[in-house]
Each structure stands twice: as structure tokens, then as C-alpha cells.
């Protein structure tokens, strides 16, 4: 299927390493934005918020 026969020695890391670096940077920026968003009024008391697993208590606004 798909004409898979044998592996070709296509260079992967050499041409694509900037994309990998960009992916890592994007991942950490997303994590930062997600953490900031979790602490907003809309999600701070959401039962899925992981701070409750660490023993967090409901916050009043």
C-alpha cells in the first residue's frame, strides 16, 4: 500500500531543524498562554482546573 518498499536516506534533521526549534518555542508559549488563561475569572473555579488537585480552594470574585 502507498508504494512503501524501502527506506530512502532522506535528510530530515538537517533541513527541518528550524521547524523543530520553532515547535518547541511555540509549545512553551502555548503553555504560558494556557496557564494565564486558566487563572482568569472564567476558568479559576472550573472543576477541571488542575489547581484543585493540589488542594486549591474555590475563589470568590
Amino acid at each position: 500500500a502507498f508504494g512503501i518498499r524501502r527506506a530512502y536516506p532522506t535528510p530530515i534533521v538537517k533541513p527541518l531543524w528550524p521547524y523543530a526549534v520553532g515547535g518547541v518555542i511555540t509549545f512553551f508559549l502555548f503553555a504560558k498562554a494556557a496557564n494565564a488563561s486558566m487563572n482568569t475569572e472564567e476558568f479559576i473555579n472550573d472543576p477541571r482546573n488542575p489547581r484543585f488537585k493540589a488542594g486549591g480552594v474555590k475563589e470568590e470574585h
Partner: peptide
């Protein structure tokens, strides 16, 4: 659209 799953999704 729920931020608790953003890192999982992008990973």
C-alpha cells in the same frame, strides 16, 4: 477551547 487541554493538544 478549554485552556486545560491546550498543552495536550499542541503536544
Amino acid at each position: 477551547l478549554v485552556p486545560f487541554y491546550f498543552t495536550n493538544q499542541i503536544f
